[in-house]
Computed example of a mutant assay.
Amino acid sequence: MREMRDVLLVDGYNMIGGWPELAALSRIGLQEARDRLLERLADYQAFSGIRTIAIFDAYRVPGLGKSFAQNQLEVHFTKEKETADECIERLVRELSHKRRQIYVATSDMVEQHVIFGQGALRISARELLTQVEKSEKEVQIKIAERIDKSSRNRIDDKLSPEVRRMFEKWRRE
């Protein structure tokens, strides 16, 4: 049985160019920027539950065309003479199903029109960054709440106000 959850296809180099942190990191080294993007996307996938696939253009790299999983995140490097846009379009066709919504994260206007024509929805680099940052903040809030609850695991927190007043009255007598 095919998995029916929604899919997010991410044009990796487009995000690296569109996210300020990654653009700055790419000037130091492209591998570092890719790793940081994949780390953030893996966290986003874990939090949102949406299946996420990152696609990187290897158009001029002979014989590449690799696909692998990293931190539960699918990563595709395009085949020789295949652009990331072509790979994304192919994946949209392959993954399309009436019970599944496909989102494509790219700021490439031409690509946005093509995938929209195939029934996928587009998300710009800035919109995806906003969603990722929002999910990261929500994760931090949930972690803080857990830490707060575990550090204050007192019986007093579990008592009703009436019982608390009764105990306080006994204590003062």
Results as ranks from 00 to 15, higher is better:
Ser160Gly: 12
Arg90Thr: 07
Phe77Leu: 14
Arg126Trp: 11
Asp156Met: 05
Leu41Trp: 01
Arg99Glu: 15
Ser160Phe: 01
Ser48Asp: 01
Gly65Cys: 12
Leu37Ser: 00
Gln140Ile: 03
Arg165Thr: 07
Phe77His: 15
Val75Met: 08
Ser48Met: 08
Glu94Cys: 05
Arg100Ala: 08
Phe167Tyr: 14
Lys134Phe: 14
Arg171Trp: 06
Phe167Trp: 09
Arg122Trp: 14
Lys137Leu: 13
Val114Pro: 00
Asp157Phe: 05
Ser48Lys: 06
Phe167Met: 15
Arg154Ala: 12
Asn153Ile: 02
Lys142Ile: 06
Glu145Val: 01
Lys169Glu: 13
Ala33Gly: 10
Asn14Arg: 09
Asp57Leu: 03
Glu39Lys: 07
Glu94His: 09
Phe116Thr: 11
Gln112Ile: 03
Ile88Leu: 12
Gln101Lys: 13
Trp170Gly: 07
Gln31Phe: 09
Ile50Asn: 00
Glu133Cys: 04
Val92Asp: 08
Lys142Arg: 15
Arg40Thr: 00
Asp6His: 03
Phe77Lys: 02
Asp35Asn: 14
Arg40Lys: 12
Arg172Gln: 14
Ser150Thr: 12
Glu127Ile: 05
Leu25Ile: 05
Gly63Val: 00
Lys142Glu: 15
Ser96Asp: 10
Arg40Asp: 08
Thr130Glu: 15
Leu129Val: 02
Arg154Asn: 11
Glu74Trp: 03
Trp170His: 09
Ile88Gly: 02
Gln31Met: 11
Trp170Met: 13
Glu82Gly: 05
Leu73Lys: 05
Leu159Trp: 01
Arg99His: 15
Ala33His: 02
Leu30Trp: 08
Lys149Asn: 11
Glu94Ala: 13
Gln70Pro: 01
Lys134Val: 10
Ala46Thr: 02
Phe77Asn: 08
Val92His: 02
Val7Gly: 06
Val132His: 00
Asp85Phe: 04
Val132Ser: 02
Arg154Cys: 04
Leu37Lys: 00
Ser135Trp: 08
Arg126Pro: 00
His113Arg: 13
Ser151Glu: 10
Ala84Asn: 08
Asp43Cys: 12
Arg34Ala: 07
Met166Tyr: 14
Ser48Cys: 07
Ile50His: 00
Thr130Lys: 10
Val110Glu: 10
Leu128Gly: 02
Leu129Lys: 06
Asp35Ser: 14
Met166Gly: 04
Leu128Cys: 04
Tyr59Phe: 15
Ala144Leu: 11
Arg34Glu: 11
Lys98Cys: 07
Met15Arg: 01
Thr78Trp: 04
Asn71Glu: 14
Ser160Glu: 09
Arg172Gly: 09
Val104Ala: 06
